[in-house]
């Protein structure tokens, strides 16, 4: 299945958002959105990933 992860096209095996984070090596404090909608961490395990999904994974960053 092909998805777009943080703006880059990727082929992944994961079926859920939680599996995707694991497969792509994300850990620590991150927040997720799929197709521009926020997906809380409590729903990641049940959130199914579909072909063509746009997934955003964000983390703390410097800001003003």
């Amino acid at each position: 299945m092909k998805i777009v992860l943080n703006g880059e096209s990727r082929a992944v095996r994961a079926e859920t958002l939680a599996e995707l984070l694991q497969e792509c090596g994300f850990s620590g404090r991150v927040a997720t959105a799929v197709n521009e909608d926020f997906v809380p961490s409590s729903l990641r395990a049940s959130h199914k990933i579909k072909d063509g999904d746009r997934v955003e994974v964000v983390a703390p960053m410097q800001g003003g």
Binding site: S27, P60, M61
Partner: peptide, 12 residues
């Protein structure tokens, strides 16, 4: 003040 950006490894 802080922000959120795409995780590139430095966030944690």
């Amino acid at each position: 003040t802080v922000s959120l950006r795409r995780e590139s490894g430095a966030g944690q």
